[in-house]
Design a protein around this nucleic acid. Structure first.
Lengths: 254, 254
DNA sequence: AAGTGGTCTAGACCACTCT
DNA sequence: GAGTGGTCTAGACCACTTG
């Protein structure tokens, strides 16, 4: 990895914090800072002003400012790096569907991806409601198989809103690579910041089963991911299916 | 709710913090305080000494002490209540298996419980390894059905280490009530502090299927919970099975 | 050497809970 | 009113990253 010195933003206009009754100073401050991020004034990957600067600009003590930033860190909105600065996060990590399955192979590998189908369609009702689009709106529908060591293991259906993703509606899909989120970022300027995943058990339709090399009606785990950007707009609905017998997921309660 | 004034512990012997190199003061302090809890010197439900007292006893500033306590709060070890004090937590909450299933009924209800079987057995190998007991050790095996509105929905197998749970090995099971964890606490003095839950997909054996009123081989979700006490000893292994079609679980990614 | 975030202090004042 | 935890300040010093 080559080193790129962080671009740094200038101090903002001095704007003293307006005190809200019954609300802590750091909570109000956190909201103010969050607004800056959501409005895109502090783009991802760029260092925001330093603690000292922000504290002075808002007329609060350092400790108070730090508590505000801690809230945003817990939100997953920003990231602090000792000695370098504070950065707006560029997207979620650890989003691999593989964490739901145990497939016996060399672990740590990204499964390869092959696009089977790409079409403009009218979104099915449940997908449309998750996307927040109107009935009858056209969306981009992708189907792809993901394989490990040449063996197909996951079948993924994705629905993407148009015209936001129109850059993906044409052109060769062979060069897309194995991951979609980097593609979304590069070609469409869209970053996934938060996602909801629903797990269910289902059985495979004849057409879906064919791609995974199992008989129709075979039991599968179905993971429906609804992905959102920074502002909270739905960006993608994805349904991933894999052999139910390979499914395994662990939760820690405290 | 009637009010019970919190019992409060006396100040501990003054013991200045031994500085460890390369480690923050509050982290070392947190470990020291954690030890007090684990050794049982600060029992659950009792208020531990106040911020002022603890800070003075360990020779640190208030802010430093507060950071240490924050770590323990994040651990789920203690709980702070404004104006009342700081308390050792008594056990995990939200441990209901119902959160994995959608059963169409009046929600918020605790499912009723009926014990089908209670025996001393040699634990099956996978259970023994989770319990951390030796091969051939006897454990207490419980089987119970849980029902909502009279309809059986979950089948639970539990394995409990002996002699720790010998108080449950005899006597009428009819009066046990619908929840096991309160029973563990009252009769055996055992509290569940942390738990690991593994979700898998399975199909019901003939004997298991009968109790749920479905045909043998019916698909089911299998949740294996391994529960631990404060100190980290395994307390219970529980396998819960429910209709796979009723299974639904949601995760938020950030 | 300069700039960043991380730790720690010592104090003031506030909000909440209970006697 | 006395005691608890929660907020906020203003400062010192440290550890880490870079030029």
């Amino acid at each position: 990895m080559s080193y790129t010195p962080p671009r740094r933003l200038n101090s903002m206009a001095l704007k003293r914090l307006v005190t809200e009754v019954g609300r802590s100073r750091y909570a109000t401050l956190a909201d103010a800072l969050r607004e800056h991020v959501l409005r895109g004034e502090w783009p991802p990957g760029v260092a925001i002003p330093s603690e000292q600067t922000l504290a002075a600009d808002h007329g609060v003590a350092l400790g108070t400012l730090r508590r505000a930033l801690e809230l945003l860190v817990d939100d997953g909105l920003i990231e602090r790096i000792h000695g370098r600065g504070t950065f707006v996060r560029t997207g979620i990590s650890g989003a691999t569907m593989l964490r739901f399955f145990r497939f016996r192979t060399d672990q740590g590998d990204v499964p390869t991806s092959r696009i089977l189908s790409r079409k403009r369609v009218v979104a099915p009702p449940d997908v449309a409601s998750r996307l927040g689009s109107g009935r009858g709106d056209e969306v981009l529908h992708l189907v792809r198989v993901r394989s490990l060591a040449g063996a197909p293991c996951l079948l993924e259906h994705s629905w993407l809103p148009l015209p936001q993703f129109k850059a993906l509606a044409s052109g060769a899909t062979e060069a897309w690579g194995d991951l979609l989120y980097p593609l979304y970022a590069e070609r469409c300027g869209v970053r996934v910041h938060r996602a909801l995943e629903e797990i269910r058990f289902d059985s495979l339709s004849a057409s879906n089963a064919r791609y995974l090399g199992v008989p129709a009606g075979h039991p599968c785990a179905l993971i429906t991911r609804t992905a959102f950007d920074l502002v909270g707009n739905c960006i993608e609905v994805r349904k991933t299916r894999g052999d139910a017998h390979a499914f395994e997921y662990t939760i820690t309660l405290t």
